[in-house]
Nucleic acid binder design. Structure first.
Lengths: 155, 155
DNA sequence: TCAATCTTGTTAACATGTTAATCAATAATT
DNA sequence: AATTATTGATTAACATGTTAACAAGATTGA
């Protein structure tokens, strides 16, 4: 039994924060977003709103809220609030499903598409800089490992 | 120029969410925390409060708020609120620095240490299960890559 | 058919994230 | 010493995360 940092006299209970996967993921995400957030902020949009718009743009057709929430990795209660915002700002259109009165169908509108076209160049620039700093192949490998981890833990 | 998902007719603007590092990091973190959160919830504590307690326990001596915020990866405004909670629940003690009246010194107290001892076994169990599912060596490699990424982007 | 159940989305309540403004204490400058 | 600038922490304001409860529409089964 050995202590890894010299200051924790509880031995290995718990592992120190440098070896914590949740914290490492949080910090990495924070470091990545530090480059992106200013770009989005300049366009008056949050990271989550951006994710919603991107998913809708990729899909290209009306999507119900549950599916949208899943694809954008946003919880339903948050999505409800975000849809209200984006709808007021004319970036999306929200209508009730004719066949199933519970469902809400969301579609990107012209305002949203315009915003995406505005932000995309800057976004790609940031991402290119990231790949250049960290290594294009390492980014690919990291993505693969993260996806693998997510898959293996979701069962 | 090729489309990667068949539905995005904006070509490569922007890369689809499956290849997005921020989202991959978010999902991975979410998958990891899904196992961990119930444990903390059973003990009536949030993930961030747990991080604060762990850092204080590892350090083992009074720490000023700025340092604590940095080590726990929590922003100062959030930390202020968290310290108030933990202090009311007798998990930490907060005093002003004698030498520098601006600083606040935080130290874990008996209640906090007790909680850590309670949660630690379950925590290790979850982490062990994670390592077993994903692979011990892959966890190490992933931690290393994340740390590398964070470092390279923070300059 | 109709009551029980399930599903979808929303609301509620509280905690944290995020940025900007503020306040008090210290340090720096003249 | 008095003024100014900087620093550390807090407060404010708004957006999201998180869990639980809820409401309304759809399904099921007796």
């Amino acid at each position: 039994m050995k202590s890894t940092n010299g200051t924790n006299h509880h031995a290995d209970i718990p592992p120190d924060t440098r070896k914590s996967l949740p914290i490492a993921l949080l910090r990495a995400r924070e470091a990545v977003m530090a480059g992106f957030r200013p770009v989005l902020a300049r366009h008056g949009i949050t990271e989550q709103q951006w994710r919603v718009l991107r998913v809708l743009s990729e899909i290209g057709k009306p999507l119900d809220a549950s599916n949208l929430a899943f694809r954008a990795s946003i919880l339903p209660p948050s999505l409800t609030r975000i849809l209200k915002m984006l709808s007021e700002r004319q970036m999306i259109s929200v209508i009730r499903d004719r066949g199933d009165g519970r469902r809400v169908l969301v579609q990107i509108s012209k305002g949203g598409e315009d915003l995406i076209r505005e932000v995309a160049p800057e976004s790609r620039e940031i991402y290119a800089d990231l790949e250049q700093r960290y290594g294009e192949d390492k980014v690919r490998l990291l993505l693969e490992m993260l996806d693998d981890l997510t898959t293996k833990l979701s069962r």
